[in-house]
Amino acid sequence: MDFLRPASWEEALAAKAEHPTAVPIAGGTDVMVEINFDHRRPEYLLDLNRIGDLTEWEIGEESVRLGASVPYTKIMENLRAELPGLALASHTVASPQIRNRGGVGGNLGTASPAGDAHPALLAAGGEVEVESAARGTRLIPIDEFYKGVKRNALEPDELIRAVHVKKADGPQQYSKVGTRNAMVIAVCAFGLALHPESRTVRTGIGSAAPTPVRAKAAEEFLNAALEEGGFWDNGKIITPSVAKQFADLCSASCNPIDDVRGTASYRRHAVGVMARRTLTWTWESYRGTRRTTEGAA
């Protein structure tokens, strides 16, 4: 095993180009487990800790450019307003110690369906900024990033530099089911974002299919139902039947398995419950904001 310690992003890209099998390590919260448990012996470890700008973020007009190694703790503490869904998801990651080290780049790199950030990213919308020495930068839409169980759209010579997450234009929520009240891998997870500007709703489901997925049929149904009933304008309470159908469609978009963490049947069921609850919470919050704005005007 060789330990590569690039001091800059350019050096890192060069090292990755030279050694495409090199395994990037930042927070180490996935890679080191595999090494400690003898599941993996990479030829090269590519340490990204010395590249300072990976732990920085910029808040832009439309989106937040979040460095791949910004620790979850920082997201929780600093980006709750801009990225509320991701901030909530970050708070469910493992333990304080892990949240201090791990970042979204690691979740994306590992691309486990159980990664906590994925549903929030899918619901918010965004792009993954990846780069190679040979071909430069490309932006991969988050919807096209997940390719299979622990497979993503990266080329062997590419590294994840940042993720551009759309700034929230409405309420967002995130729920995760685990069989413990802290420090637990998701049995399944659900992210939901209201986008009042485009009058759309986006979702993200974790751990209930080979990859993180959006519940597209559910989104389409809800978008149509909200539009049809004039809900975005009148701010009415969403009817239980609409919420139920949305929840059922979210369940239906799962393709889960039975494993030691839970049954497929439970995952489908729980995604439905979380879909209904997060819809209620976000919509109540949206109605509340509307009332406040109207009241102020």
Partner: peptide, 18 residues
């Protein structure tokens, strides 16, 4: 758990080279 540059982390998940 140790403090790494002041931050509590699991030292088992920090590669020595880091």
């Amino acid at each position: 758990t140790v403090r790494l540059d002041g931050v509590p982390v699991c030292s088992c998940l920090v590669a020595a080279g880091q």
